[in-house]
Simulated assay, not measured.
Amino acid sequence: MYSSETLSVNQKFTPASSSATAPPLPPFGAAPATSIPVSSANQTYNWTTPTYAPPPRPQAPVPWSSALCCAGGDITNFCITCWCPCITFGQITDILDRGSPSGFLNGAIYALLRHFTCLHPFYSCMYRSRMRHQYNLQGSSCGDCLVHCCCESCALRQEYRELKIRGFDMFIGWHGNMERQNRGVPAMAPIMQQGMTR
């Protein structure tokens, strides 16, 4: 099982083949290796040292297109938002959700929350925050909540005007705007990328 030959304590073990194939050691203070040997045929894999690149700076938030308490000349929207804000909210969410779920469903949820729980400002302020992030608008989450709690109809009208100024026809919804854009009707609305495409 074991070889009968033993090495003495003072004797060094050196394989016969190691001295012939071992590369010479670099001199003291030499530059470190920059490649990895791949095989014994002197092939190497070279790599570059990764450099740190800072992430791109986000653009500064832009102001809203209209003031919070501005009527904007749209008397119809003013009246609808004052007397039945669930309709305006449904139109806004249809555009922000890109038609799924429908604005009608979101408007119905808003109406139920308003009628039974008075939690509708918290539901609508989530969409204001979403809109701010989507269009890089000025504001904060706390400010969104305060605006919707203190003056819900003003906040909804401002969001409605912002989307209208950006080129959306609020009465035809997301799918209508996309259909109008695909037919070649000049649309001012930005093209929204939808998830992964082939």
Rank of each mutant, 00 (worst) to 15 (best):
G72M: 01
T197Q: 14
N10H: 12
P85A: 04
E162N: 02
P101T: 00
I75W: 14
C149T: 12
M196V: 03
S17H: 09
T6S: 08
R166M: 12
T117I: 03
V185T: 09
I75G: 06
F89W: 05
P50I: 10
R157I: 01
A111M: 15
S140C: 10
A187I: 04
P26K: 13
T49S: 00
M126I: 10
R180M: 13
P24G: 01
A155N: 05
P15L: 13
Y45K: 00
W64T: 10
E5L: 13
S17D: 08
R57C: 05
M131I: 05
I95C: 00
R98K: 15
G195I: 09
T93N: 03
I172S: 00
P56Y: 00
L105F: 07
N182D: 12
A108I: 13
A67T: 06
S19A: 15
T117Q: 05
Q11R: 09
S129K: 03
C118A: 12
D97F: 03
F168Q: 09
M126L: 13
A30T: 09
I36Y: 07
F168W: 15
A53Q: 15
M192W: 11
N136R: 05
Y2F: 08
P24E: 11
M170Q: 03
S65A: 14
F116V: 14
G72P: 01
R180N: 04
I191E: 13
M192Q: 14
A67H: 11
T51W: 03
A30Y: 01
A108Y: 09
A16N: 13
S129G: 09
P15A: 15
R98H: 14
G29D: 14
L112H: 02
D144F: 09
E159T: 01
N182Q: 15
T48P: 04
P85Q: 03
L105K: 11
T88G: 06
P23S: 08
Q59P: 09
R114E: 09
G103K: 07
A60F: 07
P15E: 14
C118L: 13
T34P: 02
A53C: 01
R161Q: 10
F171N: 15
V9W: 12
P55G: 00
M126G: 04
P190E: 10
W174V: 08
P32F: 01
P101S: 08
S65D: 08
I87N: 01
A31S: 12
C70T: 06
W64K: 00
Q91N: 04
T93I: 08
H133C: 06
Y127E: 03
G176P: 00
T93F: 07
C125K: 04
I172W: 06
C149F: 08
L112D: 00
F78H: 11
F122C: 00
L119N: 04
L146W: 15
P63T: 10
H120V: 05
P54W: 02
H115D: 05
T48D: 12
